[in-house]
Simulated assay, not measured.
Amino acid sequence: MSPPPPAPPAAGVRAPWEALPATVREAVAEVLRAPVVTAVTQPGGFSPGVAARVTAAGGHRAFVKAVSADVNPDSPNIHRAEARNTAALPPGVPAPRLLGTHDDGTWVALVLEDVPGRQPQVPWKDDELTLVLDAVAALGRALAAAPAAFDAPPLTESLTDTFSGWHRLLHGTDKTDSSEHDDHNAHRHRLDRLAELDPWAARNLRLLVELSATWRDAAGGDSLAHCDLRADNILLTPAGGAVFVDWPHVRSAAAPWFDLLLMLPSVRAQGGPDPEEVFTAHPLGRSADPAGVTATLAALAGYFVASALEPPPPGLPTLRPFQRAQGEAALEWLRRRLGTPPGAHPGTRLR
């Protein structure tokens, strides 16, 4: 299988350190016990606002991310969740430590350990992907052993609406709305946009709804899940390891292979290998139930595709194109699992 065209960069709208209000910069200085003297904005990632590696007058280094509700109304709560989750991670999880926070109700800032390292190169290089996949296996073991009392929403309960994308596209309603009707013209427009994105998916919407309906039965388990593994959330260290950053979306009661499944469409979209070959060869994927993986992959593809058809959120102009690229990669993978070449009608669901 030839790789799809490269995905657009995973990048939000970054603001410089100097754009932070003085009160926020002073709060960071209190955490570091000295004022910041240098700040280098970091590329990659979708969160809007400030993301910078900083050095304080005393030489202490840190990574600071800060956002205002004026930039994006949802981002402050995402930062708050990341602070809670990062602080609660057990020591065996390769993640940066939380050094301190600032929250004035409008601005939320996180001061994190500055991890020496860089993001993997994209398009992906084989040796770096091998390193990351080994690290994902180790991460899976660490998250499976994480405390059961970790305060994170259960995966299958919290993602029910998120993973109902095909249902919403077919019926024009929320998953819980029993009417399953909306304005005919609006519904037709939605389906026309889907047909432009992927004619196969448009023709087979009902099968995709049916196929993804059982994902909750398959994706539940006893592990924590990061739920947002991508190249821009991974740092390769000089010592040859990998550290996983950005932890706001942690879920509990997940299958151990869930993070690997979520990661592979982005890998494929950014020049990586066939996700089916990677998944089935990986320690986390080899023991997964094939039918359950297919159902969860179908639901994941529905999330990406339905999201890609929505207007961009404030401050995140590149999110929808990146979701579209992941949706196309996920659908390509799903068609392979169904034994269906692009453009053909699907065969029997894998059992």
Rank of each mutant, 00 (worst) to 15 (best):
A15M: 05
R141S: 08
L211H: 12
V305S: 09
V31T: 12
S307Q: 14
V37W: 00
N72L: 09
L133P: 10
P8S: 08
L139A: 11
A213Y: 08
E157R: 09
F63L: 11
D104F: 07
A83K: 08
A29K: 13
T237P: 03
P35E: 09
L207N: 03
L300G: 00
A87W: 02
P342Y: 10
A148D: 11
G272T: 00
G347L: 12
R216I: 06
A145G: 11
P147D: 14
E113M: 07
L205F: 14
L235D: 05
R286C: 05
A186I: 01
V115K: 06
P317L: 06
V243P: 06
L284D: 02
V136H: 04
A149W: 02
L319E: 08
P91L: 02
P116T: 04
V67D: 00
A83Q: 05
H60R: 15
P90D: 08
L309T: 04
P153Q: 10
T296I: 00
L112I: 12
F150A: 13
L194Y: 02
T41Y: 01
S47D: 13
L20Q: 06
P5V: 08
R216H: 05
Q119M: 12
G347K: 08
G92V: 02
A137T: 14
L191K: 15
P73M: 03
